[in-house]
Design a protein around this nucleic acid. Structure first.
Lengths: 146, 146
DNA sequence: CTTGCACTTGACGTGCACGTCAGGTTATAG
DNA sequence: CTATAACCTGACGTGCACGTCAAGTGCAAG
């Protein structure tokens, strides 16, 4: 499996995969001629990387996760343990807020207004100046929300 | 309540609030002298905006939410309805994946390895080339994960 | 053998969400 | 009244996560 096929399999681009490799998030085997080779296990890992990035982690954070995975189990000064612990708390908070937000958006869709979205007249008068640049709409994005 | 106080109340900077206003996400009243004035309702709205941005929405997406809020209830060609519906499905997926990820990270912390994080030796050999730029670590970020 | 596509590395460009600085004005503390 | 902090409006800079282009190589089809 070469880079193009692997990239489409996880919904990314070849460029993204090369970038992840450059950052040390994975190491691709090579064919004799130098082409990168991926297998299903790599694709699974790439999906995990994409999920981690989608949750708001940075490439550096995922590097730290990789470092934790590669650390010897007896390496107790591995700094990722505490970081991951803190990250877990943040994830809990985030899941909770996302769930609440989902509910608010759902009822907001039903009522068109709810207690959280009041006084619209004072917010968001079309514009006065000019938005700095063209802002891409949600409509023009991939389904993976990146 | 002026901009500095409002900004710290929601965990942002004055610059961010001015930027949101420039993008039409809110309209601040002004004092006679031109200083922006905020109240508790604005702070609540800013928290919502921050949450929306934290879930991966862009400024443009939040602009669309604002447009939906400001649309007349009988405006059925408001394009946000369908977009929000799709967004709800994405949020569901995301909440599910975050929950799974949380579990994987927790067990990963306990075992140091789990089924998802196998074969570490082939991933992430320290580095071969050089990372493009210095990558900021998770340790050097605010607790709000932006 | 040629065509054409996918791949390689390297370098530079881009969009977002701000950060930061310059130069000036307003508000508050002593 | 002065000093200092907080605010104002541009304008330019920054970091991340890639996108895109250039110039060359590998490989399968016709």
């Amino acid at each position: 499996m070469r880079i193009g096929e692997a990239a489409t399999a996880v919904g990314l681009t070849p460029r993204a995969l090369r970038y992840y490799e450059q950052c040390g998030l994975l190491v691709a085997r090579r064919t004799m001629s130098g082409h990168r080779e991926y297998d299903e296990e790599d694709v699974q890992w790439l999906r995990t990387v994409r999920d981690l990035l989608d949750t708001g982690l940075t490439i550096g954070d995922v590097q730290a996760v990789v470092a934790m995975v590669n650390a010897e189990p007896d390496d107790d000064d591995c700094p990722m343990a505490g970081i991951i612990t803190r990250r877990l708390a943040e994830l809990d908070e985030r899941i909770e807020r996302l769930t609440e937000l989902r509910a608010r958006l759902a009822t907001g869709l039903a009522h068109r207004f709810d207690s959280q979205f009041t006084r619209p007249c004072r917010r968001a008068q079309p514009r006065r100046g000019g938005v700095p640049r063209r802002v891409r709409s949600i409509a023009g994005r991939t389904s993976s929300a990146r």
